[in-house]
Computed example of a mutant assay.
Amino acid sequence: MGKNKGKRSHTKHVFVQKKYRDALFRRIFNEKSVLLELYNALNQTDYDDADELIFYTIDDVIYLGYKNDVSFIVRGTLNLYEHQSTLNPNMPIRGLIYFGKQYESYIKQNNLNIYGKKLLSLPFPQFVIFYNGVEPLEDNKDYIELHLSDAFICAESNHLTTNAAPRQPVVTTDMPVSDIDVPDSAAQNTSSPISTRPCLECTARVYNINYGHNQELMARCRTLEEYSILIGRISSNVRNGIPLEPAADAAVQECIRNGILKDFLIKHRSEVVGMLLEEFDMDEYIKMERRDSYEDGHEDGLAEGKRLEQLHVVHNLFQKSIPAENCADLLNENTDFVNKIYSLCHAHPDWSDEDIDNALKEK
Rank of each mutant, 00 (worst) to 15 (best):
K7C: 10
F127I: 00
T172Q: 14
G65E: 06
T11I: 13
L42A: 06
D357I: 00
K108Q: 14
W351F: 06
E279M: 08
K5W: 14
E145P: 07
K108T: 09
N189E: 09
H83M: 05
L36G: 02
K67E: 08
V74K: 13
K7E: 13
Q319T: 11
Y227C: 02
D179F: 13
N111E: 12
S228W: 02
T161E: 12
P166W: 00
K267R: 12
D174Q: 13
A41L: 00
V177M: 06
V74F: 09
E304W: 12
Y294L: 14
T11Q: 00
P323C: 03
I107C: 03
S105L: 02
E37H: 03
S105P: 12
K18W: 11
Q102P: 00
Q84L: 02
I144F: 01
E289C: 04
T173H: 13
Y227L: 04
P243C: 02
H312V: 01
P169I: 07
E52Y: 05
K7G: 06
D22G: 11
H348S: 07
K262M: 04
A165K: 15
G301N: 15
R220W: 05
N210D: 07
S71E: 12
A219W: 05
D281H: 11
S185K: 14
E37A: 07
K141N: 10
N210Q: 06
P198G: 02
N110P: 08
V70H: 03
Q319F: 07
G212W: 01
P92Y: 08
M91C: 05
G241R: 03
L265N: 10
G212M: 00
I73L: 12
S192H: 09
L344M: 07
L96V: 01
A155C: 11
D353H: 03
D59I: 11
S293A: 12
L35R: 07
V252T: 04
L146D: 00
D350H: 13
G6V: 00
G259W: 03
Y207C: 06
Q319G: 09
D51C: 10
G301W: 04
L224C: 01
C345V: 02
P349F: 05
K12Q: 15
A219E: 12
L200K: 09
I229A: 00
N113R: 14
K320Y: 05
V273F: 11
S71C: 13
E82N: 09
Y294F: 14
N4K: 12
R8T: 11
P323E: 01
A324S: 11
L265Q: 06
S321V: 01
R239W: 11
T223D: 07
D249K: 15
P246A: 00
D353Y: 03
N240A: 11
N111H: 15
Y98S: 01
Q188H: 05
S235A: 11
L224R: 00
E52W: 05
R8W: 09
A41C: 08
N210K: 10
N158M: 12
A251V: 00
I58R: 11
Y81K: 05
Y211V: 05
Y131T: 08
S236P: 06
D283I: 03
D179A: 12
N237W: 08
